[in-house]
């Protein structure tokens, strides 16, 4: 197994797992805490429109997706606050419109169509060095943002209207976070694909949440869980020759179930002790 580490693509896959775990650990904890999983799902699917446009224009499809899903995320957030359109309806519209645009642009682009499977299910083993650099840059931005604005993020996420009475920059933080969520989702599509991104944003967080009740700890725990799960999933995918995204997510779910059982048992012990 050690000789595997010599391959560039394996190394890239490992670095990508680390970076994506950090990105999704932080951003996913926010998404789950704030109950905007459905918005994140909408952004994920809408980004397909950007991928199609990227192809059509001949640029890296992830750049197209980055611009498009940032716009979609902020439009969704705008509707969440405005009351002009029901939030879930806005999400539904952008979700399907993005997918439709993506297919249209891929069809009208001359030449061989891209491998759609890789965008739907992702592949850690094809992460290029350039994409790795994009992940690293984004990870730096996200980590610094959370370190710098941590107190503000929590105060606003917990009670937005109180934050407004304190004259805190509520809209700036909200829109900045929606933008970061969109960018993280786009970068994660490379690894997990459109269909599986949501699991990176929710399963490690739910596992971590079994043990911790505080945002910082949940985020830190999800990063650790996500790194472990990704590496195990990567090994399994290599030896069983199955897609990496799917095997990582299966490992995530198994880890969650084990944690749930362990948590259940220790909790029962505690309860018994209280009774006695």
């Amino acid at each position: 197994m050690i000789e595997l580490l010599q391959y560039q693509f394996i190394q890239n896959a490992i670095y990508a797992s680390l970076l994506i775990s950090i990105l999704c650990g932080l951003v996913g904890t926010y998404v789950v805490s704030r109950r905007i999983v459905f918005i994140a799902g909408g952004v994920t699917h809408a980004s397909f429109g950007g991928i199609g446009i990227g192809y059509f224009l001949g640029i890296h499809p992830l750049w197209g997706a980055a611009v498009f899903s940032t716009m979609a995320a902020n439009v969704m957030h705008y509707f969440t606050g405005s009351g002009k359109l029901r939030e879930d309806s806005a999400i539904g519209i952008l979700w399907s419109f993005g997918m439709a645009l993506g297919i249209i642009f891929i069809f009208i682009t001359p030449g061989t169509p891209p491998n759609l499977m890789s965008y739907l299910f992702g592949n850690l083993l094809t992460v290029s060095s350039r994409e790795l650099l994009m992940m690293l840059a984004l990870a730096l931005i996200v980590v610094l943002f959370f370190l710098f604005f941590y107190r503000l993020i929590i105060a606003i996420a917990f009670d937005e209207s109180y934050a407004k009475t304190l004259r805190l920059p509520v809209q700036f933080i909200n829109y900045a976070l929606m933008t970061l969520i969109a960018l993280v989702i786009v970068i994660t599509i490379k690894a997990a694909g459109i269909i599986l991104v949501m699991s990176y944003l929710t399963i490690p967080q739910s596992t971590s949440n079994l043990f911790f009740n505080d945002f910082k700890r949940i985020a830190f725990g999800s990063i650790v869980i996500s790194v472990i799960g990704s590496l195990i999933g990567l090994v399994i995918s290599y030896f069983l020759n199955v897609p990496t995204g799917a095997s990582v997510i299966t490992v995530f779910v198994i880890m969650f179930l084990i944690a749930r059982i362990v948590f259940g048992i220790t909790n029962k012990r505690k309860q018994r002790r209280v009774v006695v």
Partner: peptide, 25 residues
């Protein structure tokens, strides 16, 4: 009515009252 699942401690909620435009980080 607040989100009872939101992961924040009582102390941190109270402390958040001291946040202002000059003092965030």
């Amino acid at each position: 009515h607040f989100d009872r699942q939101f992961p924040v401690t009582v102390l941190d909620v109270v402390l958040s009252g001291a946040l202002n435009r000059r003092q965030w980080f």
